[in-house]
Write a protein that binds this DNA or RNA. Structure first.
Length: 465
RNA sequence: GGCGCCAUAGCCAAGUGGUAAGGCAGCGGACUGCAAAUCCGCGAUUCUCCGGUUCAAAUCCGGAUGGCGCCUCCA
């Protein structure tokens, strides 16, 4: 597999340090609110990368953190008259709700920053010992100039970074580029004891500490949004490599931005959509499908039109699968006929195309086109009395590929099935009696219940919209 | 000022040297009580523009125009 590595800005063959186990760290949410559709992109992308690596036979250890202590959380908690801990717990729960809806599997470890404070302190002490950090009035800062490779991920000469850095009027920091590892507690803020007095960890250090604790000094893939390249990931490299003395992450993979109506998402423009709200409008599955319909590194545009198009496209794949499931117990026994054998070969060709696409830097857009081709072949081949053997193997292959992308979700038991089946039977009776007014009325009623009904040569077929 | 990205049919979107995937929308046909779904057929002589390299370029090089991002919290 090839992956684009931002360290050298090239597609590289992916070779994990340990051929048996791929170690991935992906930056997770700061839990002070529902996460928005922009946040959802990396979650979906790296979930898909993880699924694909597993599909290709790797074992994967996947770590995604929760930032559960920071300025925004403290501020929001104060506004709501609650504590940081309660607020972050609440939005961690909400994260899991949306993540599950989006088909994002739970990470192997979901560490919280507040759970690794001892490891963070230990790492900061190491950095101080090695001359990479210094304490200053209860804070601790990273001495950026002590790490000569600073800027190697963002490809910025350190001089340019310095000229762009905000000049700090105070003399707390030695250099404007220095960033906080430990922040002294202000009155009323949550605080942990440390050698430098009560305080809390800076944002960047938590990821370095968690990656080290759960994945070791060198990880294979570090993921996140492009906006984290600088300063967050640059700082992680400085911290981890400064403290551990070894390479931190071998492949740095970043997803592109998500724009709203061709504009950058921003609260001042009011073009902000949470996944919770977006899912109500289009469905979680549409959001995931939409994200995977373009290459992960390109910018994508979230709009009413693009989401509606994604929903319609996904519909085609859902119909294909529903048709196969419907035919499962209605198809004839016996082995594949000659024509079906030929189609199966073409389906295998689609699978090969799918793998080629995914191997090429996770080209999910191209991979999806292979699935559409597969759908066309399956639809055409099952128009009249396919064999059960064909339907079964076709469905298995279809599920295999859509499952890697996680785009069709899992079958859910329908609690209203009995009632729906009764209505459909009633409608069939009306149709048989050529009482079309009644049969159409029943179909309208089912439509209102969110049931899509189709008449087929094998009888009526229904599924949830 | 520094570092980058993008420009492909009405819309979305693959394609990094060999003669333009796929999807949505639309049109025609088949099927259907009607519908839905599905199948078949139809759309870029051409990839923003201008030069160049090459037997050959959407793909490489130079330039122009337009759009965007990072360099500050941010997925």
């Amino acid at each position: 597999m090839k992956l684009y590595n931002d360290l050298n800005r090239k597609k590289e063959d992916f070779v994990p340090v340990d051929p048996e186990l791929v170690r991935i760290y992906s930056c997770g949410p700061t839990v002070y609110d529902f996460f928005h559709v922009g946040n959802a992109r990396p979650f979906i992308i790296f979930d898909t990368l993880r699924r694909y690596l597993i599909y290709r036979g790797y074992k994967v250890k996947f770590v995604q953190n929760f930032t559960d202590i920071d300025d925004k959380i403290i501020r929001r908690a104060n506004e709501e008259g609650t504590t940081s801990a309660e607020l972050s717990e609440r939005f961690i729960k909400e994260y899991y709700t949306d993540a599950k809806g989006l088909g994002i599997h739970k990470a192997d470890v979901h560490p919280k920053a507040t759970e690794v404070v001892p490891e963070i302190i230990e790492m900061i002490e190491t950095l101080i010992e090695k001359g990479h950090a210094y304490a200053s009035v209860g804070d601790v800062y990273y001495r950026t100039l002590s790490f000569p490779e600073y800027g190697k991920l963002s490809h910025q000469p350190i001089d340019d970074l310095m000229s762009g850095a905000r000049v700090d009027v105070s003399e707390i920091k030695e250099n404007p580029l220095d960033f906080a590892l430990w922040k002294a507690a202000k009155p009323g803020e949550p605080a942990w004891e440390s050698p430098w007095g009560p305080g809390r960890p800076g944002w960047h250090i938590e990821c370095s500490a968690m990656a080290k604790k759960f994945l070791g000094d060198t990880i294979d893939i570090h993921g996140g949004g492009q906006d984290l390249i600088f300063p967050h990931h640059e700082n992680e490299i400085a911290q981890s490599e400064g403290a551990n003395g070894s390479e931190f992450a071998r492949y740095w993979v970043h997803n592109g931005y998500l724009n709203i109506d061709n504009q950058k998402m921003s609260k001042s423009l009011g073009n902000f959509f949470t996944v919770r709200d977006a899912s109500a409008a289009y469905g979680y599955d549409t959001i995931r499908f939409f994200m995977l319909s373009s290459h992960y590194r390109s910018q994508i545009n979230y709009s009413r039109e693009t989401l509606s198009q994604a929903k319609a496209g996904l519909e085609r794949l859902k119909n294909c699968r529903a048709n196969l499931v419907f035919l499962l117990d209605k198809s004839g026994e016996g082995g594949l006929c000659e024509n079906e054998k030929a189609v199966m070969e073409k389906l295998e060709g689609c699978k090969a195309d799918f793998i080629d696409a995914m191997d090429d830097d996770l080209n999910t857009a191209d991979a999806i086109s292979a699935i559409f081709e597969m759908a066309r072949l399956l639809n055409a081949a099952t128009m009249e009395s396919p064999t059960k053997a064909f339907v079964e193997s076709g469905l298995a292959l279809f599920d295999e590929l859509t499952g890697v992308l996680g785009i069709l979700g899992e079958d859910a038991e329908d609690e209203d099935a009995a009632e729906i089946e009764a209505l459909i039977a009633e409608r069939q009776a009306a149709r048989k009696a050529k009482d079309f007014a009644k049969s159409d009325a029943i179909r309208d009623k089912l439509t209102a219940m969110g049931i899509l009904l189709e008449d087929t040569p094998q009888g009526p077929k229904w599924r949830r919209a």
